[in-house]
Every structure is written in structure tokens, then in C-alpha cells.
């Protein structure tokens, strides 16, 4: 490969690598978003379960008061 060809190839390489780096950054971002959405879902689930347990406990207390 002549040196001119090498330079041309290097210039293309730079562009290619830069755009792939962009892909890496977007991938990192997607990974973080994925994790955060998962955490949010877990939080919501925990909250719902807490509420359900709270309702159940309240129900028992009400029954006790009736009797």
C-alpha cells in the first residue's frame, strides 16, 4: 500500500472510529436507562406490595373492632 493510500485509509478510519465511539456512548446511555427503568419498576412493585400489605392489615384491624 502506498503512503498516500495509507493516509486516505487513516482518514476514513478516524471517521469510522469516531462514529463507533458515538455508538459506544449511546450504548452506555441505553444501559443506564435500562437499569433505571428496571429500578423504577421494582420501586413501584415494592410500593404496591406495601400498600396491599397495609390494606390487608387494616382489614384485619377492622374485623377485630367489629367483633
Amino acid at each position: 500500500m502506498s503512503s498516500t493510500e495509507k493516509y486516505v485509509a487513516a482518514a476514513y478510519l478516524v471517521v469510522f472510529v469516531m462514529i463507533l465511539l458515538y455508538v459506544v456512548i449511546i450504548a452506555a446511555k441505553l444501559t443506564r436507562l435500562d437499569r433505571e427503568v428496571g429500578e423504577l419498576a421494582d420501586d413501584v412493585r415494592a410500593q404496591r406490595q406495601g400498600e396491599a400489605a397495609g390494606d390487608a392489615a387494616a382489614g384485619v384491624a377492622d374485623a377485630g373492632a367489629d367483633g
Binding site: 502506498s2 498516500t4 493516509y7 486516505v8 482518514a11 476514513y12
Partner: peptide
């Protein structure tokens, strides 16, 4: 201009 003109096309 030679092959380096190929850089021009995207530079």
C-alpha cells in the same frame, strides 16, 4: 491531484 482527493469527498 492524486488519491488524496478522496479525502476531500468527505472532509
Amino acid at each position: 491531484d492524486g488519491l488524496n482527493q478522496k479525502i476531500f469527498y468527505f472532509h
